[in-house]
């Protein structure tokens, strides 16, 4: 690959000082995302998914938060720390964001139309009238019926699904190159979820924007993602294409997540296999692999040394000692396909 990716995040470390000590929420995360591409970041609550993207957006409170290392470059320009490129704020214009809970993320005292018009006035210097017309057009393109009437209403007059559409309309108002969606459908019903996901895919097709989708629902991942990063205890433990993650899972945590979910397959009445135990305490993260205490394949080494990235295909890597060439355990149930001389 020659051209720099749209967004490249390298070695991101984020910590929070609390009364109990310093929480190392994100511990060295690398990922990149290109136009027209959807990257899903998957993991359980508290694994650092949201903190990673919020720190890129400059949304974590500093203090107590602190970005202790790393870089995030948008088209090659550093945005960590300032969020300005050439004196212009990239938040809201180059990068749009939607949140899990639209009810609390919108301003209850402003009309929906005014809230969507605001970024246009701030970032694109639109006049009030033109911004308002554009807001109505955006609501309409997010398939809100009677957009003109709806634009004059307040958030409490909208249902959850409609609010999420309004949030999307606001996030895409300045035609961002990247849309970050933090659990956009977790609070919604499956039927409404399906509508919102379709809308996001259509908008991506029209505008070519990149999407970073944070979710814990593997069904949503399978539906939306081109690439997947699986996070655990503040690190990315496996990264690959959506097919790599589902059909050639290399990390025991990925396998664990998959077998903890019911599969709708009539021929297999598989039992749910929960992942026992809890994620590690990030006040004092373990020296080795964070997943070792819960991992059925853990070796002595896993608890002492943190595994590096082992490549198992083009663009597919996992941080698991099982994939070291000298490892004697190569569990078949991991569907591990030997990296036949490809990659690094």
């Amino acid at each position: 690959m020659t051209a720099a990716p749209l967004l490249q995040v390298e070695d991101l470390h984020v910590e929070f000082s609390t009364h109990g000590g310093i929480v190392q929420a994100v511990r060295g995360v690398n990922f990149s995302v290109d136009s027209n591409c959807t990257l899903a970041i998957v993991g359980e609550s508290g694994c650092g998914k949201s903190v990673s993207v919020q720190s890129i957006m400059g949304l974590i409170p500093i203090p107590p938060g602190r970005i202790s290392a790393g870089s995030a470059r948008l088209r090659g320009r550093e945005i960590l720390g300032s969020n300005l490129i050439d004196g212009r704020d990239v938040r809201g214009s180059e990068i749009g964001m939607i949140f899990q809970d639209p009810m609390t993320s919108l301003n209850p005292t402003m009309t929906i139309g005014a809230q969507i018009a605001e970024p246009l006035q701030v970032h694109r210097c639109y006049g009030a009238g033109r911004a308002r017309e554009e807001a109505i057009r955006l609501l309409d393109s997010c398939r809100i019926p009677e957009a003109r009437k709806r634009a004059g209403q307040y958030p409490f007059e909208f249902s959850g699904g409609m609010l999420q559409r309004a949030m999307i309309a606001m996030a895409i108002s300045c035609k961002p190159a990247l849309l970050i969606a933090d659990e956009p459908t977790t609070a919604l019903d499956v039927t409404i979820q399906s509508q919102i996901l379709d809308l996001m895919l259509d908008l991506q097709r029209e505008t070519g924007m990149a999407i970073i989708l944070i979710t814990h629902d593997l069904g949503v991942v399978a539906r939306m993602a081109d690439e997947v990063a699986v996070m655990y205890a503040g690190k990315i433990v496996e990264h690959g294409s959506v097919d790599d993650i589902f059909y050639r899972s290399a990390h025991p945590y990925t396998c664990g997540l998959r077998s903890a979910m019911p599969v709708n397959d009539r021929s297999r009445q598989a039992e749910l296999k929960p992942i026992e135990g809890r994620p590690p305490d990030l006040f004092s993260p373990p020296p080795g692999c964070g997943y070792a205490p819960r991992c059925p394949h853990a070796m002595n080494l896993c608890e002492r040394e943190h595994p590096p990235e082992f490549t198992s295909g083009v663009g597919h890597y996992s941080r698991c000692w099982l994939h070291h060439e000298m490892s004697r355990q190569r569990p078949r149930e991991l569907h591990f396909r030997a990296a036949a001389g490809e990659g690094a």
């Binding site: 379709d198 629902d217 589902f246 979910m261």
Partner: peptide, 17 residues
């Protein structure tokens, strides 16, 4: 509308929203 954790199925599925 229920998303299946299987990319093959999801790609084949016509959107039945």
């Amino acid at each position: 509308s229920n998303p299946e954790p299987d990319p093959e199925i999801e790609r084949k599925r016509a959107s039945a929203t």
